[in-house]
Design a protein around this nucleic acid. Structure first.
Lengths: 233, 233
DNA sequence: GTATTAATACGAGCGGCGTTCGTATGATGC
DNA sequence: GCATCATACGAACGCCGCTCGTATTAATAC
């Protein structure tokens, strides 16, 4: 009996893949349609999120894209939450972790955060899933292990390093989640107009409306990440 | 004609309440049941979230608690998103903003962040709604106005102050969102056990497992907020 | 060569969600 | 007394995640 989805999930949290013997395929494979695999599910899911955003990723929608029924997915994935974890896992797995260089730890950490940010932004809204992702997933642990190694090489105290990693990843998640919601909001011009129309009980907001609404590109992101990193010993 | 929910929402974003004349109540009011009002809806919603968490707050569930049908809510609230905004608005409205004291701006900002955190934590998961909340809501603007005033009094450059407020509120949101998901996760003991069972490709994680899983109470929160604030000029 | 068995696939259906629509209710102004 | 109109609400629509019973297929055992 090949591993159930539950067993696969457990393996992702506990040990490296048990390398279950690739049991020869059985079961129906009507016509030219290729069989459903976990990888195919993940690939298709990423496609949907990239094109239509995370909210469009439903089990039914995903099944339709795979030309099957939603119930078929549950033979490969425990539930939606499990699918989310698989997506976040793959995302983290693709982060390039540099060999720690004691003289360049700040740039290295900034680089990792930027990579993570760009991965999230490629798949709008997926950071929602990142918040729920369990901290014991092997792929996400690989990421924190790499960040920890960089900070330790930079002579940061272990406790400080651990909390800094938490703070940084939490901020990256939040920044990307907010960024993915930005299209639902009024544009900068509209906000400036509303700020100008505010009553005089909002003097600072009116006066510094430009500063409050500025931050094109990733200026705000860079500002905050640097703020945190420069504060480390 | 008394204001439609849409008009009420617009008022929250544009101008102070237009103080629509409190038209005497009309319509059915069968038996002793008191009429549905926006305030009653908000109060009941907070009760549900406080007791059962944000995910339990559905329009149907809310309507049931008010002893009515879900469709009745739409006479007072535009939609679920609007309800979320009302909740976040009230939450922000209850934050106590101190008179800016140039000599105590750090403590003042920390205090405001801690208040915000405690408000969010009182209603588990509600920070999900905070992410989506539009930045032009009057109650949330009052909060950022107050924080801006504190930072400016501390001689922080306007642009730095604006971005710092963004970073701080984003972090508070993220921290509280993660905190509300914590009960779904394995406890600290279980995580330590898993870390110990990791392969040797995770040397730092294994060695500093204690540091990585520490941070009872709000230690991690305090660490990060101080990290950001101390980095300001 | 045939029967057995395990793996896979999937349609139908359950309960719940946000939201809309048509209609009923009843206090108010004339 | 009657028309008006804010208010209230049941029924239904199209989604959602998920489960269950069953059908299909390929490897295996005899």
């Amino acid at each position: 009996m090949s591993p159930t989805p539950e067993e696969r999930r457990a393996a992702r949290h506990q040990f490296g893949t048990v390398a279950s013997p690739p049991t020869a395929r059985r079961g129906p494979s009507r016509g030219s349609k290729q069989p459903i695999t976990v990888d195919a599910i993940i690939d298709t899911a990423f496609g949907i999120v990239a094109r239509e955003g995370y909210d469009a990723l439903t089990m039914r929608r995903l099944a339709t894209a795979l030309e099957t029924g939603s119930s078929s997915l549950y033979a490969h994935v425990v539930n939606k939450e499990d699918l989310d974890e698989l997506l976040i896992g793959r995302l983290c797995a693709e982060i390039d972790l540099p060999e720690p260089d004691p003289g360049a730890w700040r740039e290295q950490i900034v680089g990792v955060c930027a990579q993570l940010r760009d991965q999230y932004l490629r798949y709008p809204g997926i950071s929602q899933a990142a918040f729920a992702a369990a901290p014991s997933n092997l792929d996400t642990l690989r990421l924190s292990e790499g960040m920890l190694a960089i900070l330790l090489a930079g002579d940061i105290a272990p406790q400080t390093a651990a909390w800094a990693i938490d703070a940084l990843t939490l901020y990256v998640n939040a920044y990307c989640l907010e960024a993915s919601l930005e299209n639902r909001r009024p544009g900068r011009d509209e906000i400036l107009r509303r700020f100008a129309a505010l009553p005089d009980t909002f003097p600072q907001t009116k006066r510094y409306a430009a500063e409050l609404t500025s931050g094109t590109g990733h200026d705000r992101f860079d500002f905050t990440v640097r703020l945190m990193i420069d504060g480390l010993v």
